[in-house]
Write a protein that binds this DNA or RNA. Sequence first.
DNA 1: TTCTATTGTTACATATTGAGACAATAGTAG
DNA 2: CTACTATTGTCTCAATATGTAACAATAGAA
Lengths: 234, 234
Amino acid sequence: MALPSQRDFIPNLAFDSVIFGFSGEKLKILLMEYHNTGWLALPGGFVKREENLNDAARRGLSERTGLENIFLEQFYTFGDTERFKPEVMQTILSANGHQVERDYWLLDRFVSVAFYALINYNEVVPTLDALSDAIAWHDVDSLPTLILDHNWIVDKALETLRENLNRKLVGMNLLPQKFTIKELQRVYEAILGEKLRRTTFQRKMLSLGILERHEKLYSGKSHKAPYLYSFKKN
Amino acid sequence: MALPSQRDFIPNLAFDSVIFGFSGEKLKILLMEYHNTGWLALPGGFVKREENLNDAARRGLSERTGLENIFLEQFYTFGDTERFKPEVMQTILSANGHQVERDYWLLDRFVSVAFYALINYNEVVPTLDALSDAIAWHDVDSLPTLILDHNWIVDKALETLRENLNRKLVGMNLLPQKFTIKELQRVYEAILGEKLRRTTFQRKMLSLGILERHEKLYSGKSHKAPYLYSFKKN
DNA sequence: TTCTATTGTTACATATTGAGACAATAGTAG
DNA sequence: CTACTATTGTCTCAATATGTAACAATAGAA
């Protein structure tokens, strides 16, 4: 597979995406594993010369997950010189059988705009890119070491997610359209990393007036069935 | 004065700063006026090849205000293609007597990382840059039209400032070290754009336990003198 | 000494949240 | 069909936090 050409992209500028999903129990993110190195990294990409920055990230997200219309937001731009480790990209490229010149554009310094995305775990079909041979979900609370500053990027994404949880009612994007309040509570708990009180959470969510109540969900378990809810359209 | 050389900077990447100050009554920002055009713009600059992104913004801030150790934080990266209007920079350059080639690097597309800064209005000595002939404070609630998307950048900065006001106790950076609660209240009111209730505000601030009480401030007015406060270190 | 404007604090009503109690109910075990 | 269990939806009461107003203290002016 051909490498991306410098001519098509803005030099020295990249994006990386922290793609969050919720398994039903734990908060997870998607990580790429690079061929022959075992190295793990956030999915990312480059910005085309005639493309909006945010559209580039959305394109990358759709290429990796097959999903459109996803919650996606930038949260920080990483531009420290310590990011500049040409030997990392060099190794990844040669592990893929690519010989490049010392001044090849991908070996240069990159400033990376970081985004976080919230998606419905069950709808995704993770798809590889040219340099990777695996893409998989990993628990955010027990991540392995990632390349460059990617662990730091994930930490910052989580921090932003926590801050935006109530302010932007962001939790909804991690669930299917219809869900129980218990499931919503588990999402909040996974993001905040702490247990919440059931009755307080239920009262709080219902009092916001943003939920629409639907039919009950019969799980087959021997207890009272919870109602399903969806978020009101605007 | 010589133009910046492409060789020293990362191409296609800029930063812009929304520098907030508080006059005692109104929230203000610093704007540059470009020579011979009357155009107004946010102070900004470019990132040196061996310089951290955040350090570049801090350098630009210090060049414009003479201040070090300032509250400075990035809040968004603007990367839409509509930003790309080479005729704007072209006009600014020729108004300054610079003839440049069509492919001159400053005429290319730029993605701009935007920062906001909070400074003590009275300590600043606004300083010009190479292309401008005025730098001055402007009321944020009655801004003129700025070049490119700079009005939009200011709006987003204000929005971020409002969101961070309580969360990060950011208001303190706009005041001198010692201040009265009334002055602090005026800062909050200017940022939020609404009147606050005196007693509630006073109780709230004191209950946070972040203020240290000092001597009284005798203003010469005929009424009870308020206490001066400072923020506790850490 | 009286008066005015403003400050710091208290008091009470109202709203929000913490913590637990309780009835309703879907299935399971007898 | 009845007793039992786990979980849900709702209510109650206590503990906090906030809105609103009252009030005493006080720095200077008249």
